[in-house]
Design a protein around this nucleic acid. Structure first.
Lengths: 138, 138
DNA sequence: CTGAATCCCACATGATACTG
DNA sequence: CAGTATCATGTGGGATTCAG
């Protein structure tokens, strides 16, 4: 038939996407670090007094994170060289996470983003109310 | 029956989530601004020479964004008072987006995050390769 | 204690087509 | 040009259970 099938078109699209990713891989990285959990984890580690935190400490410090997301996020950060993972073979096991130097530089940035959110929440909230009211009136 | 239905459980979970959101609304805001598209839009607007950009300019400047996501992101940013939307009733219509003062302060931060991604991509990439190889060897 | 593995689904996002 | 509407899909992410 003259037209390609939907599946073929999807294949093509995927191939094009892969090519794009190769061309612009930083977009990938940006997406990775533009993640709520990444921001919270790095902020927490950045603020840690000893510079390192245990798995369960992180879980308690970060509101609403599930085991799965915490583990997943930490693994991904470890893979990217942002954090180090240190296992102490005691009973029970103890695992500490610490920012690498590379991670520290990113942690600063993300902390300031988190700070921004906290500092400007009221302002944003007011804008939202105004916007919604205007829409309701119209 | 003794156990609650799946639907009821979901209802409960949603209620708990809503309660949590009320308690910690900045987490909401952080999730909003920790978004790939938000970062790219604000970076683009921050770098704009006239300080403002048209809808289609943004679409061209930001690689891989769909109309839907661009519109959605811009609306959300407008609602939050991060950008302003100006319609010029010419033919064809012209719509410009510009950072507000509030948006400017956030734009700086997100631009530096984007910069970080671009500057450290090679380093992260090297870490990934090392990590993956170690995993393959083991 | 620190995960790994599985199931499951709601939602975010993308592609496409249409409109003022 | 700047959207809106609709549909299809992938996946993020929670709950649960098992393991070292």
């Amino acid at each position: 038939m003259a037209t390609r099938t939907a599946a073929a078109l999807r294949e093509e699209a995927r191939a094009a996407y892969d090519a794009f990713v190769k061309e612009c891989p930083t977009s990938q990285l940006l997406a990775r670090i533009s993640d709520k959990w990444v921001g919270l984890v790095l902020s927490a580690l950045g603020e840690a007094e000893q510079g390192s935190m245990r798995y369960s400490e992180l879980g308690r410090k970060i509101p609403g994170v599930s085991q799965k997301m915490l583990t997943q996020t930490l693994r991904s950060l470890e893979r990217d060289g942002i954090v180090t993972r240190t296992v102490t073979a005691t009973v029970p096991v103890r695992v500490d996470y610490r920012l690498t130097e590379l991670g520290g530089s990113l942690g600063c940035l993300l902390s300031s983003v988190k700070q921004w959110a906290e500092n400007h929440f009221d302002e944003v909230s007011a804008h939202r109310d105004a916007y919604d009211e205007a829409a309701a009136t119209a």
